[in-house]
Nucleic acid binder design. Structure first.
Lengths: 184, 184
DNA sequence: TGTACATCAGTGAACGCGCGTTCACTGATGTAC
DNA sequence: TGTACATCAGTGAACGCGCGTTCACTGATGTAC
């Protein structure tokens, strides 16, 4: 069947969005192309009309997560207390519980790094994040402090998601948040 | 062939040690039992004389990593400046470059958490680590500060391993280390 | 001391399954005449 | 306006492969007599 002019582009976009979701939620290795395409109501064979390989989709999906993140964080850094807002949202229960919609650094980037497939896209995300945080910090140590703050946020999120006791998980999240807010 | 009394126990131990290494280095999902057994000079069929399933090995290997870590950290916390020594070792280039011999929290525990297979063993590791750090901190906020410090260490390690630019990786590691040492 | 037997850690072929990838094909639509 | 054809996003069977797991078997050794 033939489709409207932008049909293919729309399908491609749907694949990218679903992949960005599943890669972050379940992991890149644990997400199969067959189930992914099925979720979109498509058959798996058609995948290669859109991407050269799974690796190409991975790279594209990571970049998409990064952009999505940038645009959703834009209003945060334009707000009155940007850093506090950012910390509260990054270490929120919602972000912890929904890795599929969240920051790709503790999920996709970490997995790709471990696999030895670290991407320059990750570097860009990290540099952007650091710059955004740094811009909110007074003092001459802003650059150094931003690295510590970003590390704390990512580490706390990783820990809160790794632990089996929900009470401990919440405590980690909440305490890290308060400690960071004291600094900010 | 029949073997000496403790032969089976030794083989079991060899499996656990190699698994703990590969699970941390390459990931649980990416480590096959067949290659694992082959590495030890054994055939894969024999695996099930030692473990009920891969999941059982995973749990055992995580616990082994935890113990290994405890005993290797023991002398650190008996040293003159325990916290500074711990920070320097956790955020060392060596630890960053050798996940297979390192802390299981940013590797195995994070992967199991994402998989929805978070283990109480992870909780125990986290609680132990926090208690050890807390014991080194003066002041009434030791408990809260220890959570922030552990988070920072794990986050910095995850970031340094995720990034593709070695210069950026080293800078993240080094800066996080210095910031933590200032606090300690 | 010598022989028959029991033990059991480890062997290796086989199982069903899902993976990433390929490819000949379909069929609704837009275009050409 | 009506018909023949080209297009091409999507179909679905098939590929080789590695996975976790099962199982009948091996064969060197310890034990029993």
């Amino acid at each position: 069947m033939r489709y409207s002019d932008d049909h293919k582009a729309k399908t491609r976009q749907r694949i990218i969005e679903e992949a960005a979701h599943l890669f972050r939620r379940d992991g890149v290795g644990a997400t199969g192309l067959q189930p992914l395409m099925k979720t979109l109501g498509l058959t798996h064979g058609g995948f290669y009309a859109h991407f050269k390989s799974k690796d190409e989709l991975v790279e594209t999906a990571l970049a998409h997560s990064a952009e999505q993140l940038n645009s959703s964080t834009e209003h945060v850094f334009a707000s009155e207390a940007p850093l506090a807002t950012f910390i509260r949202s990054y270490l929120s229960t919602a972000h912890c519980a929904n890795p599929g919609e969240g920051c790709p650094l503790p999920t996709m980037s970490a997995e790709l790094g471990q696999r030895g497939q670290a991407s320059p896209v990750t570097d860009q995300i990290v540099r952007n994040r650091l710059a955004a945080i740094e811009a909110c910090l007074p003092g001459e140590n802003a650059a150094e402090e931003s690295i510590a703050m970003l590390s704390t946020m990512i580490g706390a999120l990783v820990l809160a998601r790794s632990v089996s006791d929900p009470e401990l998980s919440q405590r980690l999240l909440k305490t890290a948040r308060q400690q960071l807010l004291n600094q900010a």
